[in-house]
């Protein structure tokens, strides 16, 4: 159970990265991003779509790095506990 829980962030991050790649480089861009309108804050949708993904990728990287650090912290704590 706990192993499945600890794997979840890895799976979610991998999934998010694949979806992001599909949406900004792959056919996802053609399906959902390749339009001039609507204009958002004066920018065409084709640019806004890429910028939305920029924010999403940054947020997912931030969260994932936080998770990586917590895992490393736990590992270090348990290693020092074993040492004692």
């Amino acid at each position: 159970m706990s192993s499945a829980r600890s794997r979840l962030p890895h799976v979610l991050f991998a999934l998010h990265s694949v979806v992001a790649t599909f949406c900004v480089v792959g056919p996802g861009y053609r399906w959902w991003g390749a339009s001039a309108r609507p204009f958002v804050l004066g920018l065409p949708w084709s640019l806004v779509w890429a910028l939305i993904w920029l924010v999403a990728v940054f947020a997912s990287l931030l969260l994932y790095e936080r998770f990586t650090r917590s895992v490393e912290g736990e590992a270090a704590r348990s290693a020092s506990g074993d040492g004692r």
Partner: peptide, 19 residues
């Protein structure tokens, strides 16, 4: 025109594997 946005797309996800 909008063809230039490929630069943003590849730059955004191209560096993730380096993590």
């Amino acid at each position: 025109g909008a063809a230039v946005f490929y630069v943003l797309g590849y730059g955004l996800v191209g560096f993730i594997p380096f993590y």
